[in-house]
Design a protein around this nucleic acid. Structure first.
Length: 598
RNA sequence: GCACCCAUAGCUCAGCUGGAUAGAGCGUUGCCCUCCGAAGGCAAAGGUCGCACGUUCGAAUCGUGCUGGGUGCGCCA
């Protein structure tokens, strides 16, 4: 039977099937509202942006709910019930709609025919890994700057969360249709790289058989020993008796480069790859800082002045001094910020302004910075600078990443170089693996602190969300193997032709409904720059699958593998569609799906 | 003193550009293993969403003011 629209026109066969059912149904609602305007039931020119179609909180209310009648009641000057009643009649004409009812203050609850959900299983199989890919990004060029750890040593556990978050956000936005650039800002222009050079020089003396003098304030880490040896290979003993002025710049560059090599390796261990590495040092002496400050000056945002001392916590050596200041208060900041120290040298903020100016000039439509929570004080001034330098065109979103609290043997512990409890990124990845590390780091909102317990994240039980999700995928693979052994063809092409109308049990439809939420979830997560939503969704999806599985103990007709091979195939299609979404979700988190639990 | 972040069940946390009776896991209590994988399953109890006003048809969600915790506040990066 050919399905027809209310107009009588046959519904065109969709090659890929529905993708985002929620936006499809929202389009249906908008269309119906337009028809109501045409029929004079609603005034023209209504703002429809607030009309939403969402899953109801309580599943007993139906499959989807729309608030259209309530948000339009006031502007239309009609009671919500009146609008809802007419709208319901329009919606009921659509072949996908099984039932519409008006509830509460004017909600419209929709129930869809089972074939809509069953068809979605097919869509997921046909589109495979692309299922859920969104277009809301519309090719917008977004730059995500993250990690940006100082190039003075290996990455430690404190850097891991930001690295994982940034990378997952990049993957998420790419999946949502943005053109994403991952970028690392190398802080190689400040005093800390001089300290690095001096520390490396002591290890160089050590490599030449002399006692290293690792004074207070130098970096004591062993990781500099190979740097000293590499210096010996390069320079022999020729630098040993030279004064610092002779070697500092050269050694600084040499050591920084080796540190960056180490950091790149650390990132690779986590599966993080940057597209661009930008150097702070490269901004000095090239006129870029001066150009950025000049641009601000031309807007009247740079002046010479004296800052008020902070109230309540007056530094002991406070002394009012005139400095070059950026009028960040003109763009939402609380006080103006210095771009030059009192001795005339640039503050750290100045090259940062130039760097963000550079990103704006490279043509990015949106900037995202990922900072540690301790850099919260920089948010307003950085936003002010970007707002000024882009003429308000380029939004800057700054995500602050809260601390990770480490637990071992049920006891919290703090990192300390002296106590030997300094935990490197490498330590973490080698102990628990990159997949577990990544998943766990993404099971919290970025602005909530996170507990990381080395024992718990490795635990193989349903209490561990990593395991729970991976186990769901393993179960899917397990039933597919069994089905194949029973002689059922289970490749995606065959499965997408399976008779999905056999999936008529409520528990099966519920799983299909959860799958249907995936494209919508991608959009919501991308809109808010919130990759953690993917992790929570995957947990819920896994939960639906496990629920169906457990239910099959009492109801054998729910088992994935049945005597009849056609029935098996349709049930495997559902399992496989779930697997497709789990794999797609894990790919956004940067986690490898496992096929078997061992 | 000021700014930013946080506050939801005994614990750890979700909660969708404001939506209906606020959810999950752990823990507690009670049942259940001949069953595609019991490294579990089913069910129950458990909440003035920190407090108070306000906006709204409707507030955990938005605004203001408090309380409590965290982070930061020129001459570090």
């Amino acid at each position: 039977m050919t399905r027809r629209l209310p107009s009588g026109r046959p519904i065109p066969i969709q090659r890929t099937g529905p993708m985002n059912l929620f936006s499809d149904i929202r389009a249906l609602v908008i269309g119906a509202l337009d028809a109501m305007v045409a029929a004079g039931d609603l005034p023209a020119g209504l703002e429809l942006a607030a009309v939403a179609v969402e899953p109801p909180r309580d599943a007993s209310h139906g499959d989807m709910a729309t608030n259209a009648a309530m948000v339009l009641a006031k502007p239309a000057g009609k009671s919500p019930r009146v609008i809802a009643d007419v709208l319901a009649k329009h919606l009921a004409d659509d072949p996908r709609i099984f039932e519409v009812d008006v509830a509460g203050p004017g909600f419209l609850n929709l129930r869809l025919h089972p074939w809509v959900w069953q068809g979605l299983v097919k869509s997921a199989l046909e589109t495979g890994a692309e299922f859920g890919r969104a277009t809301i990004g519309a090719g917008i060029k977004v730059n995500i700057e993250f990690v940006s750890a100082n190039p003075t040593g290996p990455m430690h556990v404190g850097h891991v969360r930001g690295a994982v978050f940034g990378d997952a956000l990049a993957r998420l936005l790419a999946f949502a249709g943005y053109a994403v650039t991952r970028e690392y800002y190398i802080n190689d222009g400040g005093a800390q790289v001089d300290v690095l050079a001096r520390s490396a020089f002591e290890r160089y003396r050590e490599a030449n058989g002399l006692d290293p003098a690792i004074r207070e304030g130098l970096y004591p880490g062993d990781y500099l020993i190979p740097v000293g040896e590499a210096m010996k290979t390069k320079w022999g003993a020729s630098l040993i008796d030279q004064p610092e002025e002779v070697w500092l710049a050269e050694v600084r560059e040499f050591a920084t480069e080796l540190m960056m090599g180490m950091i790149r390796e650390d990132l690779a261990l986590l599966g993080v790859e940057m597209d661009v590495y930008s150097s702070e040092k490269a901004l000095y002496g090239t006129g870029q800082i001066e150009a950025a400050i000049k641009a601000l000056k031309e807007m009247g945002l740079i002046y010479e002045g004296t800052l008020e001392p902070p109230k309540g916590k007056l530094p002991e050596d406070w002394e009012a001094r005139e400095q070059t200041l950026f009028r960040s208060t003109a763009h939402g900041d609380d006080v103006d910020r210095p771009v030059k120290k009192s001795d005339g040298a640039w503050t750290y903020f100045a090259p940062d302004i130039a760097y963000h100016y550079n990103k704006v000039q490279r043509g990015f439509d949106q900037l995202i910075d990922i900072f540690g929570a301790d850099h919260g004080g920089y948010v307003k001034r950085m936003k002010a600078a970007v707002s000024a330098l882009s003429g308000g065109r380029v939004p800057l979103d700054i995500k602050l990443i809260q601390l990770v609290k480490l637990w071992r043997n049920g006891e919290p512990f703090k990192m300390s170089k002296r106590a030997g409890t300094f935990v490197t990124l490498r330590d973490v990845v080698e102990q628990v693996g990159a997949d577990v590390t990544r998943f766990v780091m993404l099971t919290r909102k970025n602005d909530a602190p996170l507990d990381f317990d080395f024992a718990k994240v490795m635990e193989q039980s349903k209490d561990n969300p990593v395991f729970y999700v991976q186990y769901a995928n393993a179960r899917i693979n397990s039933v597919m193997r069994r089905a194949a052994e029973a002689g059922v063809t289970v490749d995606d092409a065959s499965l997408s032709l399976a008779d999905v109308s056999k999936l008529d049990h409520a528990a099966e439809i519920n799983l299909a409904k959860k799958i249907a939420e995936w494209p919508r979830l991608v959009e919501i997560a991308a809109r808010g720059n919130e990759p953690h939503r993917v992790a929570f969704y995957l947990y819920e999806l896994a939960s639906e699958l496990h629920g169906l599985w457990n239910r099959a103990k009492d109801e054998p007709n729910l088992r994935f593998v049945q005597d009849d091979s056609a029935t098996t195939q349709s049930k495997i299609a559902l399992a496989r569609a779930t697997g497709v979404v789990i794999s797609a979700g894990l790919a956004i988190l940067g986690v490898t799906p496992v096929e078997e639990m061992r």
